[in-house]
């Protein structure tokens, strides 16, 4: 017994994790990322889904030392050593949490431009879980 994200729960977020489609509240226009049942701003529950650009900036970040990540990431940590996690402020305004990949931790700053990419998150129960991570956006400053 411990913490664990079941496959049905994971599957319910595929639209967000695979395509970065997120709901905007019909009543107050607030973008809810990640999606929620009741709007984070006004509490109503009717949304229109839209595709986000995947562009954002580092709001805050950390470099987690090897062995410090949840057990789902044990294999990754053997391969990658430390891992970089950030709160990303999206161009559309909302914030998300995600790994930064293909990046040199020394280069990351609060405010660094990022763009979303499709990567493996982890491998559990013989199932590869895919989703978005972010890389440094080399085309922006």
């Amino acid at each position: 017994m411990s913490s664990y994200v079941s496959l049905p729960i994971f599957a319910s977020t595929l639209r967000e994790r695979y395509r970065l489609e997120e709901p905007r509240c019909r009543s107050c226009g607030t973008l809810n990322v990640p999606a929620r049942m009741a709007c984070i701003e006004c509490g109503r529950g009717d949304f229109d889904w839209e595709k986000l650009t995947g562009r954002g900036r580092v709001f805050t970040y950390t470099v987690i030392a090897r062995g410090g990540a949840p057990t789902e990431f044990d294999e990754q940590q053997i391969m990658s050593g430390s891992l970089v996690v950030a709160i990303v402020e999206l161009e559309e305004g909302a914030k998300v949490v995600a790994q930064l990949t293909d990046c040199d931790p020394e280069e990351v700053r609060v405010g660094s431009p990022l763009k979303a990419v499709f990567r493996k998150l982890y491998d559990q129960e013989g199932v590869v879980r895919y989703g978005y991570k972010f890389v440094m956006d080399e085309e922006r400053e």
Partner: peptide, 28 residues
């Protein structure tokens, strides 16, 4: 397995972080 069970599991934990990482981001 018991560390990082009380933050947001669906998004924070699956982004690879538990409490040291969360508090580190707050610190930064």
């Amino acid at each position: 397995l018991w560390l990082g069970v009380s933050g947001d599991v669906e998004w924070e934990r699956l982004a690879g972080t538990n409490f040291p990482g969360i508090y580190a981001m707050l610190a930064r």
